[in-house]
Design a protein around this nucleic acid. Structure first.
Length: 127
DNA sequence: GCATTGACGAAGG
DNA sequence: CCCTTCGCCAATG
């Protein structure tokens, strides 16, 4: 995991032959989310130094299911702890099921005790 | 190449 | 406290 870097720099990298892009970075972080914990798009964006571009994180997740080592996108929710992306899973209930399997209680498309199991990469990975 | 959209988030009314 | 607007930037038409 590289240190914080500006999105512009990441974009620049994207131009490089190297395939390391913003998305790969996002995937990498998401894969490090411990079981039973969740985080938000904004937190990841913040960790990558682009906190104002949380949308890009979500956009990156859009391809999460298409990449090789599948990304546990179910552990990534919006700032309210709502499963905003559940519609993008194979089935609308898949995300919830996966979370519950992780030991995360979900109620009405929202993570219970979200704040308590919240995992912030910028803090946990502390850079 | 401009316009629209999007799994977000903060700020303003 | 709910709703709207704006910023962010890649992808898509």
């Amino acid at each position: 995991m590289p240190k914080k870097q500006t999105l512009k720099k990441i974009i620049k990298q994207k131009k490089e032959p190297k395939k390391f892009s913003f998305f790969d970075d996002v995937y990498d972080v998401v894969r490090q989310i411990p079981k039973g914990r969740v985080t938000s798009y904004g937190a990841i964006a913040n960790y990558l130094g682009t906190k104002l571009s949380a949308r890009m994180v979500g956009w990156a997740m859009n391809a999460a299911g298409t990449v090789k080592p599948k990304v546990p996108a179910q552990r990534v929710v919006n700032r309210n702890g709502m499963l905003s992306g559940k519609a993008h899973f194979s089935t609308p209930t898949k995300m919830e099921e996966l979370l519950k399997k992780d030991g995360v209680n979900v109620e009405k498309d929202t993570v219970v005790n979200f704040k308590e199991i919240y995992w912030d990469p910028a803090i946990e990975l502390n850079l």
